[in-house]
Amino acid sequence: MPLTDADFAAIWLTLKLATLTTALLLVAGTPLAWWLARTAARWKGAVSAVVALPLVLPPTVLGFYLLVAMGPAGPLGRLTQAAGLGTLPFTFAGLVLASCLYSLPFVVQPLQNAFTAIPERLLEAAATLRASPLDTFFHVVVPLARPGFLTAAVLGFAHTVGEFGVVLMIGGNIPEKTRVVSVQIYDHVEALEYAQAHWLAGGMLLFSFVVLLALYTLNPAMRRQT
């Protein structure tokens, strides 16, 4: 196979980034999605809109503002510098943060839909049986919302693997730190190394198809929709 060490390093880095991002988003996205599914607060609409922003914003907008905000003069950059962490662009941590923002709706929205579909009376029944809210969540909500969790995890992971514009703008193309597969493919294409670009791009295509195929065939909720 004509893949180089640099290509494998990019693949490994991408998988690491996507795994970490998905894990963080599942942890942070679950309470957010639960709140969005259950609340009657007036600013629910505003929060939903912010969550959905990465769906419609071009990655260049997100990338540009992240570069400025995380830079030495930006609000986030001042915060991280004050905490002794330096600035985040060109670091793996910076990519994780950017990916979490970028893939947020892909995790929160399936979870929110799954939570919304759970009838209120089931939760009330659990409460009358003296289940604590946490008990109810882990023993009633989570099993019922399992397809939602699966969809959220798969979409969050796949979308992060497919991230390009944001990484290009804040990554700085550093081997083993910020050079992910999509950037590596771009480099190959720009350098007119089409053979190597094909191997990686073809692999990406196959990977994405298999992931989505698995999602649509294995997940009962998705099967009903199609």
Partner: peptide, 11 residues
């Protein structure tokens, strides 16, 4: 883009 990295102070 290289100029942008320097102009924004990130590099």
């Amino acid at each position: 883009q290289t100029h942008q990295f320097v102009a924004s102070g990130n590099a």
